[in-house]
Design a protein around this nucleic acid. Structure first.
Length: 212
DNA sequence: ACCCAGGTGGCCC
DNA sequence: GGGCCACATGGG
């Protein structure tokens, strides 16, 4: 079933290529983690501006962020919104990562529980980092995922962990599919049926019981 | 002038 | 466990 949905979305939209990173960063995985924090309830284009600002000034690397004045960091990431909170989160997170030894040590050893326990990282941000930076099979559940799978009648709840487990139990054992599927769900959510329940052009129309 | 965006934490009950 | 609310910018 999920297989079928995945194929339809992939056919319709094509590969989304998440998570986008620039080639200019020494460690793309670190850039993914920074992006994951900056994109909390924020349009990606605003996040890109903030990331470009950090790259332009060569201050994206974790040790630079730990040393930077909070006020300076706030101004550099201003475009991503909630910049006071996010600057604080980034500074503490960079410290947290470096205290693991290195970015590579962090990626290899950090646990989901540790990430969620970190103030400023919730379930979705944790799973985004685990999947797209650490390369581990955790499905990222966002508001679109909840909305779409509820309207498809495949889940009947709003609970993050329940939905994540449902997806992980029914998805092929393939990390590329985890990565691509989440991105495709976001694409679908952004482009179709924002104002329910009309969905004439929805690529899932034929398998929808309810409209997405 | 609204409304939304690749959420989270802190309250409150 | 869920229901509100603040947090803030930029684009449609």
């Amino acid at each position: 079933m999920l297989d079928n949905i995945y194929k339809k979305l992939l056919d319709h939209f094509g590969p989304q290529g998440w998570w986008p990173t620039s080639n200019s960063c020494e460690t793309p995985e670190w850039e993914v983690c920074v992006g994951a924090i900056l994109t909390q309830n924020t349009n990606w284009s605003n996040v890109e501006k903030a990331l470009n600002e950090l790259k332009k000034n060569e201050t994206l690397e974790p040790h630079k962020i730990t040393k930077m004045k909070q006020e300076k960091l706030e101004q550099m990431i201003r475009s991503s919104g909630f910049y006071t909170q996010k600057a604080d989160r980034l500074k503490r997170f960079a410290r947290f990562v470096l205290d693991k030894g290195s970015v590579q040590d962090f990626l290899k050893n950090v646990t989901r529980e540790e990430l969620i326990a970190f103030n400023g990282i919730g379930r979705e941000t944790a799973d985004s980092m685990l999947l797209y930076a650490c390369g581990r099979k955790y499905f990222v559940v966002d508001a679109y995922t909840k909305r779409i799978f509820n309207r498809l009648g495949l889940v009947k709840m709003d609970d993050y962990e329940e939905i994540r487990k449902f997806l992980e139990q029914n998805l092929p054992n393939n990390i590329k599919i985890y990565k691509e599927f989440h991105a495709l769900i976001v694409k679908l959510g952004k482009t179709h049926c924002k104002k329910e329940p009309v969905c004439k052009t929805c690529p899932l129309t034929k398998i929808c019981k309810k409209k997405i």
